[in-house]
Nucleic acid binder design. Structure first.
Lengths: 368, 368
DNA sequence: GGTTAGCACTCTCATCGGTAGAGTGCCAAT
DNA sequence: ATTGGCACTCTACCGATGAGAGTGCTAACC
């Protein structure tokens, strides 16, 4: 069923104002499904033929006219069939769609793929994106799970072959970030003294006990209390945490862009340009995080419901995974508004719960 | 000048067999440059007009006919202008193109962008891709620099909040890879004993002294000599090294796909599908690594010269960076064969040397 | 009253002939 | 060797035409 948490980004017209007759519901559903399938405006005759409606085309025509008056369908031109409007899709998704959970078989197949792969988180993410993309024939986006507020876990200072020093910071949520240390600053901090790996280790140990579990601002306050070397590294660590606090587009996994490229509505090519650019920009996904995180479950954003102008011709089906208080990630698909929602929504939902499992008690047997 | 290392992937016809007259050279160059600019077949009249050739169109026509006989130009149909063939581009790139080094101004601008950004390697890569893409109006690909043979540097075992254990491995080249440890195996290895962070640290210290500088096969041989916990972690570490030995597509940065999508030759959209898919596959870049690495400098692969069928309609301009014996990365652009080579080649070359600098003696002042 | 058949009307899309224009190839003249 | 000239070819464009799909309306029907 389509529970709460499926409402659109913008305030969708409240359902109560839109009481459709049974016939209208049937017709709207048929129009949406036919259009999703064939990408061509659908006429009254074709509808009765293909969907075994028990009424004549004339009746369907009048129902269509009513739906158009309600703003759920639209007319490319006088003598073409009807096309669902964004609002039409919305109603469809909220109350017309026969949403199934994913086939048992599909579930098992997906699980199987995950069980085959080694335990690298990145490989999970890539795999998730790939599965989403192929099974919904849309573009898929998967972000790694990140704590909303990054916390210090463990730092290690490593001396590389070429005398450069590397700070490796393990965050509280298990993510790892790294950063080369500026050699000049280090030399300055150590007052010209030669530092060996042993010195680095003791410095790291001090930091680890002093900073464990702290967030960026808390760490900032401690900088002053450290020795010169410690202060410098602490400063760097604080920066690293701050960067982790903002979702970086850096390691977002996408897949299946070619799928949506093939859709007839984007044949021109240039229509997708804006979308692609937005996808690359980090702020877009950043905006999504709080919305999805708060809401939980699958969120569908259809065409103009998207605040972003470039996305007015596409729909998003997204869900968060992970837990809000520990690490939170995003995953979902992007496609034309003419998207196979009944397929996309369960798939996204299933993958979200699956990633959840993997993230939390991960090596556990694949029960469900 | 176009030095060695510019020869194509397949054995291009040796230059000596193709002695062009001066006129042919001029005409071929003009045809290529005009076609690159306008994407429309170019006729004899247009050529003399636009390029102030000192001869009549009839003369140009006969030169064109000769070039066509040599296989350097081709004819979409009887009464259309000429279009360069892959071979025509090849000759152009090898000996006709006026290749300049990058403008001083451009160089400075690029350097400036790099100096603004923080010292994260990933940010460098992303920036490089972005610069390549915008300045050549093609798609850009940048892979991280990886040692051909990964070596053990330093390992750290970290206990996470949820009792999971993480192995963080710093490679000899400064790259960091991580892996969650399977809880069940750890419990087994530790014979049910509770392990604290202190135990993990000592275990890591043992490994660090025993394995420093070793490669995967060398480490494999040592597994047996470790204690139960050590053996398990050593095994995992060996796996991580092995994975690093193969270029993973995992963190390849691409940018500007939209640029090539807009090119008229890909208007259909579906033509690019194959290309996109190949780009996502790791083996494609893997194949490139040894070729580019051995050769050094910029390599241009034009249309059918590419071994990969899906890439027959695009050209690649790629260069390695880093040093062959330490860490080696790839960067370059992908565009239609009708690519602005005189712009792309110097840009790729400059970025390759720049990345080189950044990787090796990196924080150094931005002299050049 | 809801449903249906019928019909006139509208609009798109594919087709077709005709034409303009670009470009070639060849030949004869320079 | 180069060039002007010319016949020829092919595409792209334009407008007209007709078929087809689909609508909206009305009058009949149950």
């Amino acid at each position: 069923m389509v529970g709460e948490g499926m409402t659109g980004e913008r305030n969708a017209p409240s359902r109560s104002t839109l009481e459709l007759t049974e016939r209208q519901r049937i017709v709207l559903r048929a129009v949406v499904e036919d259009y999703v399938l064939n990408a061509t405006p659908v006429g009254s005759k074709a509808l009765v033929d293909r969907y075994a409606l028990l009424v004549s085309s004339a009746t369907v025509r009048s129902a269509m006219a009513e739906l158009e008056a309600l703003g759920l369908l639209s007319h490319p031109h006088t003598s073409a069939g009807r096309v669902p409007s964004d609002l039409g899709y919305r109603i469809y998704v909220e109350s017309l769609m026969r949403e199934s959970t994913l086939d048992r078989a599909d579930q098992l197949m997906i699980r199987h793929q995950f069980s085959q792969v080694q335990l690298t988180t990145n490989e999970w993410l890539r795999l998730a994106a790939s599965i989403l993309a192929t099974s919904t024939r849309s573009a898929a986006v998967v972000t790694p799970a990140r704590a909303r507020r990054a916390r210090y876990g463990h730092v290690q200072l490593v001396e590389l072959a070429d005398k450069a020093r590397l700070a490796v910071l393990v965050l509280g949520d298990g993510n790892v970030v790294q950063r080369r240390l500026d050699r000049a600053s280090i030399d300055r901090a150590s007052a010209g003294q030669q530092l060996g790996q042993a010195d680095l280790d003791t410095a790291a140990a001090t930091l680890n006990s002093a900073l464990a579990g702290l967030s960026a601002p808390q760490i900032r306050r401690k900088v002053a209390k450290m020795g010169p070397l410690g202060a410098h590294v602490t400063e760097v660590v604080a920066q690293m945490l701050e960067e982790s606090d903002s979702v970086s587009v850096e390691d977002v996994f996408t897949d299946g862009i070619a799928n949506v490229l093939e859709q007839p509505e984007f044949a021109g090519g240039s229509k997708l340009r804006g979308v692609l650019e937005v996808l690359q920009r980090s702020d877009f996904l950043e905006q999504l995080v709080p919305v999805l995180g708060r809401r939980g479950g699958v969120t569908v954003i259809i065409g103009h419901e998207n605040v972003n102008d470039a996305m007015h011709e596409v729909s998003l089906v997204f869900a968060p995974y992970g837990t809000e208080d520990s690490a939170l990630g995003l995953l979902g698909v992007l496609g034309p508004t003419r998207m196979p929602y009944p397929r996309a929504i369960p798939t996204v939902r299933y993958l979200s719960t699956l990633m959840n499992e993997l993230i939390s008690h991960h090596p556990g047997e694949t029960h469900d």
